[in-house]
Amino acid sequence: MEEEEAILFWDEFAQDYAQIQQESSLQIAKEVVAYLLDQQVFPISIFVDFAAGAGRYIPAFYPYVNEYYAIDFSKEMLRIIEETIDDPQNKLHLIQQSQSDFLTTDQHWPCIFMAMNPALRDKKTLLQLRKKTDQLIILRTIAEVENVFQPFEEDPVAEKELQLNTYYKKWLSEEAIEWRSCQFEYMVKEEIDRDFFHLYFEDEYSLEQRKQMVQRIFGESLTVESHTKITFELLLSR
């Protein structure tokens, strides 16, 4: 039932998720390509983009792959890939498959890449994925620090998500499996209006609390600049 609920959630969220990714100005895909070229992962004959989502990394990776397998359990995510991403060389293969089904197949892959896979949460699954490939590549956000909203928000779930790469490295090391990592940092700036800030916390804080928060962040200014520092980490195990 949990998997069915997850599929339903991602099918319903697919369009919004794709829009969020399209609006992102981060150059993470291009920087990952440069790193994989430097590590001689690219070019490669067969490449699996597992939990591919709406295909954010496909356009950047596509020129360096002979056969590209985008695998996701959401049919809506795969539909977005089919409708929005060009495949001039007919080398893009879209496969709807759950993680559990993927792990139970006997097929071994030259390379498996996954970015922000929400279902990779335990050592057993990590080791199963590592066993299925010559090269396992994992990309996750490991830190996100913002100066306007974040001081008033507590999200223990999100904080735990940021720690997952730490666990992956620990689990791989426990099994004497080699890995290396590379970090990518970005700064995103956005102008925030004080009225928007006030309304943003309407359901969480009282009117008096919000007035104090606005005074603390804005002072007498009508706007402030939000700075968000985002750090990604890529793990490569082979």
Rank of each mutant, 00 (worst) to 15 (best):
V41H: 05
A51N: 01
G53S: 03
A52R: 07
V48T: 11
S45R: 05
P43C: 05
Y57L: 04
F42Q: 01
Q40H: 08
D38Y: 09
P59L: 06
A60I: 04
Y62S: 05
R56T: 13
Q39D: 08
I44K: 05
D38W: 08
V33N: 09
D49Q: 01
Y57A: 02
Y57E: 03
F42P: 07
I44L: 12
Y35A: 15
Q39T: 12
V41N: 03
S45N: 13
L37V: 00
L36H: 06
F47Q: 02
R56L: 14
P43S: 04
A34Q: 12
A34Y: 12
R56N: 15
Y57M: 14
A60W: 03
Y35P: 00
Y57Q: 05
L37M: 05
Q39S: 10
V41F: 09
G55T: 08
L37Q: 11
I58N: 09
F50P: 00
I58Y: 09
I44E: 11
I58A: 08
R56H: 14
L37T: 01
L37E: 09
A51Q: 00
F61L: 15
P63D: 03
I46Y: 12
Y57R: 00
G55P: 09
I44A: 05
Y62D: 08
P43N: 00
F42H: 04
V41A: 10
Y64C: 03
I44V: 14
Y62K: 11
F61E: 06
G53E: 04
L36W: 13
A54R: 08
A52S: 13
Y64N: 02
Y35C: 11
G55V: 10
